[in-house]
Design a protein around this nucleic acid. Sequence first.
DNA 1: CTGTTAGCGCGTTCAT
DNA 2: ATGAACGCGCTAACAG
Lengths: 341, 341
Amino acid sequence: MATIEDVARRAGLSRTTVSRVINEHPYVSITKKKKVMEAMEELGYVPNSAARSLRNQRTGVIAVLIPRVMNPFFSQLIETLEHAASESFHQLIICQTQYSAKKELTYLNLLKTKQVDGVILTSAENDWSVIEEYLDYGPIVLCNEFEERANVPMVFMDQKEAGYKATKHLIEMGHRKIAYCCGRYRSNVASAREEGFSKALAEAGLVFDERDAFREAITSEDGIDIFNSIRTRGSNRPTAIFTGSDEVAAGIVSEAARSNWSIPRDLAVTGFDNQVITELMNPRITTVEQPVCEMALKTMEVMMARIRLRQFTGREMHKFYMKLIIRESTKMQAELARIPY
Amino acid sequence: MATIEDVARRAGLSRTTVSRVINEHPYVSITKKKKVMEAMEELGYVPNSAARSLRNQRTGVIAVLIPRVMNPFFSQLIETLEHAASESFHQLIICQTQYSAKKELTYLNLLKTKQVDGVILTSAENDWSVIEEYLDYGPIVLCNEFEERANVPMVFMDQKEAGYKATKHLIEMGHRKIAYCCGRYRSNVASAREEGFSKALAEAGLVFDERDAFREAITSEDGIDIFNSIRTRGSNRPTAIFTGSDEVAAGIVSEAARSNWSIPRDLAVTGFDNQVITELMNPRITTVEQPVCEMALKTMEVMMARIRLRQFTGREMHKFYMKLIIRESTKMQAELARIPY
DNA sequence: CTGTTAGCGCGTTCAT
DNA sequence: ATGAACGCGCTAACAG
């Protein structure tokens, strides 16, 4: 491996001059600059990043913590985050917490060990008081996740509004008994959605039956189970279900078809995230679209600012809003056709 | 930030002793070891990884290059790879090439800059002759991708067999005119599948009509387009289609339902990868299952060996085999029911 | 404009 | 069993 020293010798100059060329410093004569470039070329020289990090006290790397890459919402987020990062000449490293608090801490340690300049947290597994301590070592930005007590930037969607509007839509479609379904219980995201759901119900004078709550639904298989538990229930079944995940919704729709239920007639279903699968199912699934790209861009913008200013603490809220996409899983085709566009 | 020096002072010992404790070196008395541990605890000391990398000439990080995290085949691969890496006390960094040759080179440069100890390549975008040069800087292991000329370890599935067996299944179901569909043209993976496809056709005395070839199909939307191009073709339509992607297959099945075609009666469809969606579509989709976990484990095992031995070149083939999963998109439900299990 | 020098934090001889 | 000293490769004063 060629080092900066080798390049300097070959060019007949000092390390400093070579370093200046690398870092596009002014005050280097054209001729010497050219000499250095040639030497670098000939030796196939590339700066050693560990040495640079050590010297500069920064790595140019940002960690994004997500639960799992297989979750399409998060992988879509990553797509945009990465693009934005490279625009700012930073690299992204993607860390999967697998919903494990311990793994999350392992990755937060990247800040301590100086392997990354900042951490983007999309779904906190640990209590905020635990996470907060890492702010001594670098900036943390919450994206998607939010936390009342947190003294850091937060970029998130109004989840309460999402729960509210989707549920209100179901009510407008004539449903009076609506089931609720979300992923892990203790997430702020889930509880905000539930608030919105309850608010819509309350406004319509409806009651929320705890038997209609499913709070551990993540996969399409969970959706299948939920459908069957509804189907086999004798009387007093819900006629609609709000879900916090397109995959779960797809599982419900799929299993409903196999049981010869007609959707939305026998059961109306809403999903969440507007993933590809919602358009492939039959009927297509009504869903909540999140402004993922805008959120990702804002997140990176805020992160860059924090890194630049070395300002790790300080609350900052950036709220985004959803869009309800109405399809056949909640509205009869005939009704949809009547909508002018 | 506390450094090793701070810890040494606090413990009233030398840096060397502290370093020995950190690296679990023998020849440190119990008492002093305890003292060091205490000092580290009190100061919240964490070793600086840049300094360690610089000194040790290794980072403990491995890069995995994949086209996109949103592709479920690759994200599943990553799940297992990451698990295996952490078992070997290594970290994984996930790099998306976005099918861009230029981006791929950017990431291969991580080897040159010593940011990673090795690179796992799952889908090569550049010609092998270009990639080969990076072998001067660290080990490269091909996983999923393969390349006749490559002098590195390759872990892959027999794609030709997959194309052959899936196609043979369609022939056994009575089809005589079968369409072929794959992703990007110039991939070795795709061409091996096509070889198998052609072989099955040839054995049955069937001809491969170029009008039945679709070679740019990646997304479910591509599947929709393909279905419509088949549907609107007047006569001489294929009665079955082999695809190299479950998403494309799902697009076809979905659009077929909307056009009131009956699958598999009007068109039989096979997918690839056994993704969740194949079980959610109606009918469920026949597909090829790859031994993803086994391949990931072998890949990491081989990578660790190469890193340990500092042996970057040397061909090594690890071939794995597929499993055909037959469902209703190729076989009438009545027929499937007759299969004993 | 250019070179000399002094660390960044750590691990490892080589002494003792 | 412990410590002193060197250098991994790079950049930023400082001096010219």
